[in-house]
Design a protein around this nucleic acid. Structure first.
Lengths: 180, 180
DNA sequence: ACCTGAACACCGTTCAAGT
DNA sequence: ACCTGAACACCGTTCAAGT
């Protein structure tokens, strides 16, 4: 008779996310993930083609969660920025993973839509995409540098984030509306 | 009698950089690096404590090279941005490596100095650090997203980069001088 | 149908032994 | 003094054999 399944894709991805966040990518081994869901490593290959596919699933799940928080924060740009930063602080490893070449590009498309919508409301449809790319590039770079510990020259990081957001908005508004 | 050395740290790092750029981090194995400099893997441990130390040396060499190009481009912000982008395009893997947590934070400090100097000339010393962080965060994030293939919604990427730089400068100038 | 033990290839790393 | 063969631990992955 057909044997009932002993775990689920969701449980596997959840276990992988925990291991990733706890010990970085090196800790996300097939054996460790399998152990967490009560199975042996070879069984995982029934669900994911290989480790890269599992990483992609983790990235995708992370992007979906982020997208949901963006959805709740739009169309308030400072709120979007705050949500993004808090998410990166809480899941630094998953945050990094999302922007890894092999994995993520597609997973992000949907989650970024609330950002485009928000920015479009500020600068108009014509520059919406360019402006969204400006804002996401800044925030993503800032958080990546912050997480990597690259801000070593002192100063208040929170204040630098506020300054960046404020200055960015000033530039967006100045560039879109009439000049003075 | 003392055996003459069969390679140098510089040659090892150069070989590592080539392998990294050609095949990503996974291709940078101790055996492959050793093979490229005509030696066996265990010999590398005389020069670098472990693979992570070698990666750190690669990151450091990359950051130094980038710093030299920044030095030549300062204090022209658009020129700095163009140099940065060209460097990222030509060495995407090394560029990514620089911002990996375990490796790089310190290697960047010196190379970023020309950027701070340039930005200070635009907004004054008071906001120099915040403004430099805004600019580097934007550029780094943009390039990372571009390299990762995350800009999938169409549009002209070159134009988006120009737009970002222009808008950023507008914000910086508006925020520093008197308002209107 | 699903799971696993055993096996293979590959990698990082150590160390005693070579020259 | 420097280098290396051999060995060890560990990982990703495959597959025939179990239930």
């Amino acid at each position: 008779m057909p044997t009932p399944t002993r775990t689920t894709n969701e449980a596997v991805v959840a276990a992988a996310r925990e291991l990733l966040e706890a010990g970085g990518p090196a800790a996300l081994t097939m054996q460790a993930v399998a152990g967490r869901v009560g199975v042996r490593a070879p069984s995982l290959y029934k669900r994911f083609q290989d480790r890269d596919a599992l990483l992609a699933a983790v990235a995708s799940a992370t992007a979906d969660e982020l997208g949901a928080r963006f959805e709740a924060a739009a169309p308030d740009l400072p709120q979007l920025a705050a949500v993004y930063r808090e998410f990166a602080h809480r899941h630094p490893e998953a945050f990094r993973l999302i922007f890894t070449a092999s994995v993520a590009p597609m997973a992000l498309q949907r989650s970024v839509e609330p950002v485009i919508r928000t920015v479009a409301g500020m600068v108009g449809e014509d520059h919406a995409l360019d402006a969204a790319r400006l804002v996401t590039a800044w925030a993503t770079g800032f958080l990546q540098l912050e997480i990597a510990g690259a801000f070593r020259l002192g100063g208040d990081i929170d204040a630098a984030f506020e300054y960046g957001l404020r200055t960015l908005i000033a530039g967006l508004v100045a560039g879109s509306g009439r000049e003075c």
